[in-house]
């Protein structure tokens, strides 16, 4: 009788073991990757658009990113549109659209270095009237060289309370890239 119980316990255990099935390994997919930050400059009064890319198609590590050098003319006003793309997948994933959808928790911060290299003003607003930074205006003056830092700040609510306040402080970087800039006549 006792032996019988014992063997049933064993049979039950073995049944549980053998009923499991293993799946095949699959490649990882990063659902958050940004490979490309694209700056599109359109000079006021023209329809000519210059495009400069910061591009790292294989993501972190591996091959180093390729970074275009931004060339602008002195004493001009440009419309600046910024796009964030994942070009490691086909079709290319345009993350800009999703930033627009979640505009209340994203902010693009543009920082020229030196500060007088150019001036940037926001030209778009979210539902709470804070800038987003996907569209803006750049004004150049005299000839200079420097850098332009583009940060995509992700500022999601904390404890259900919105934290985006128009400054870079809250949240964390989704992108943080730097372009070399030459402003010449």
């Amino acid at each position: 009788m006792n032996r019988l119980h014992f063997s049933w316990a064993l049979v039950l255990t073995l049944a549980l073991v053998t009923s499991c099935k293993k799946e095949e390994p699959a490649p990882e997919d990063e659902n958050e990757l940004i490979t490309t930050v694209r700056l599109k400059f359109t000079e006021n009064g023209t329809t000519t658009t210059q495009t400069f890319d910061w591009k790292d198609l294989d993501g972190e590590g591996g091959n180093a990113p390729t970074i275009a050098s931004v060339g602008l003319k002195t004493n001009r006003t440009y419309k600046l549109e910024i796009e964030f793309l994942n070009e490691s997948v086909t079709p290319v994933d345009n993350i800009t659209e999703e930033i627009k959808e979640e505009a209340d928790e994203h902010l693009v911060v543009i920082t020229p270095q030196p500060a007088n290299l150019l001036t940037y003003t926001y030209d778009d607003k979210d539902s709470r009237n804070y800038p987003i930074g996907l569209t803006g205006k750049i004004v150049t003056t005299s000839a200079a060289t420097g850098t332009l830092q583009v940060q995509l700040r992700h500022q999601p609510p904390v404890g259900g309370v919105a934290v985006k306040n128009g400054t870079a402080t809250p949240g964390s970087d989704d992108a943080n890239v730097t372009f070399n800039v030459v402003v010449a006549p």
Partner: peptide
Amino acid sequence: TFGRQFNRRAEYDLHGPQAATK
């Protein structure tokens, strides 16, 4: 002694914009 363990660890980042429920 026989053991079978199954460990499932799901880590959710703060990250949008695409994250959804994954």
